[in-house]
């Protein structure tokens, strides 16, 4: 299945131009417990719906950027460089406790 993603630098390209970097997570700070580390490394929310994700324009400018994509329809709501991205809306699995 193919769809179009918009690189913040290069513009719209077919999705095969890009590499998927996985859903956005938050690295645990301070001195995380083994359980927190394990959750951070191995657990994902894997939502059926809008999800904030990392992508890299592998075949183009090489930039890493964020996208919000509906995992059910592959509709991409927005893409942006990390510094320009809208406020975080995706709870991470560690702090939300969903992955436990």
């Amino acid at each position: 299945m193919s769809y179009v993603l918009t690189c913040p630098n290069c513009g719209p390209r077919e999705v095969t131009d890009f590499g998927f970097g996985g859903e956005v997570t938050t690295r645990p700070s301070g001195h995380p417990s083994p359980r927190e580390l394990n959750t951070y490394i191995y657990f994902r929310r894997n939502v059926a719906g809008p999800q904030r994700e990392w992508w890299v324009h592998r075949s183009g400018c090489g930039a890493w950027f964020l996208a919000e994509r509906d995992t059910r329809t592959n509709e991409v709501k927005w893409t942006a460089l990390p510094e320009d991205a809208p406020g975080a809306a995706t709870p991470d699995p560690v702090s939300s406790g969903e992955a436990r």
């Binding site: 630098n9 290069c10 390209r13 095969t16 131009d17 324009h57 075949s59 183009g60």
Partner: peptide, 11 residues
Amino acid sequence: FRPGSVARTPG
């Protein structure tokens, strides 16, 4: 100028 895939290779 367009960075992008050319013949399925980065270019």
